[in-house]
Amino acid sequence: MTWTNALADLLVATAVLPVLLRQMRPGVYVLALQGLVLAAVALGFNPNPAGILTASLVLLAKVIAVPWLLHRTATRAAAFNLVEKVTPFTYLGVVAVLLAVRLLSVRIAPAAFGPGAAQLAAAALAATMLGLLLVATRRLLPNQMLGLALTENGLYAAGVALAHSLPLLLDLGVLLDFLLALVLLAWLSGHIRNAWGHVDADQLNGLRG
C-alpha cells in the first residue's frame, strides 16, 4: 500500500523537523501540517461516514485548535524570538529513534499487526518518541508543549495504524483530555511568565529536595 508508506514517511518527516529546528514558529507550522497528514491517515484507513467525521475532528483539533493555542502561548511568552540550541545529543537521539523504529517496522510490527499497518505503526512510534525527545531537550515551556502535541499526534497515528479506528468514546475522550491538558499548560505558562518574567524550564528551580 504505497499511500500508507507515503503518509508514514510524511509523518516521520513532520516529527523530525520540529526537533531539529532552532526556533519554535516553523515548528508550530510543521505541527499543523502533521495534523493534515493525520486527517488523511484517518480518512484513508476509514473511507466511510465515520471516517469523514473523525477526519473532520482531527482537522479541527490538530490543524487549527492545537497550533493556534501553541502559537498564542508562544507569542504571549515572546518565545518566537528565542533561539534554542540543538545539541549533538538531540541529533544522536533522532538517529537512535529512527534506527530503532526501522528495526521495529521490519522485525516485530508485521508479525503483530500485518504488513499494511506495520510501516505506519513504526512511523507513529517514531513520532511519539521524537515528541518525547523534544520535551526532554528543550528549555522553553511552549516548546515543551509542542513536544507534548507531537507525542499525542504520534499516538493518534499509532491508534489508527494498529486498530484502524478506536471506539468513539475512547477517541473523543483522549482528544478532549489532551486538549484540556494543553489549555491548562498554556494557562500555567502565562502565570509562570508573569511571576518569573521568562518561560525557561531550566530556571524553574524553586522546589528542591
Partner: peptide
C-alpha cells in the same frame, strides 16, 4: 493500551 487494543482489533 493502543498496542493491546490493536492486537485485539487485529
Amino acid at each position: 493500551l493502543l498496542l493491546i487494543y490493536g492486537m485485539n482489533a487485529h
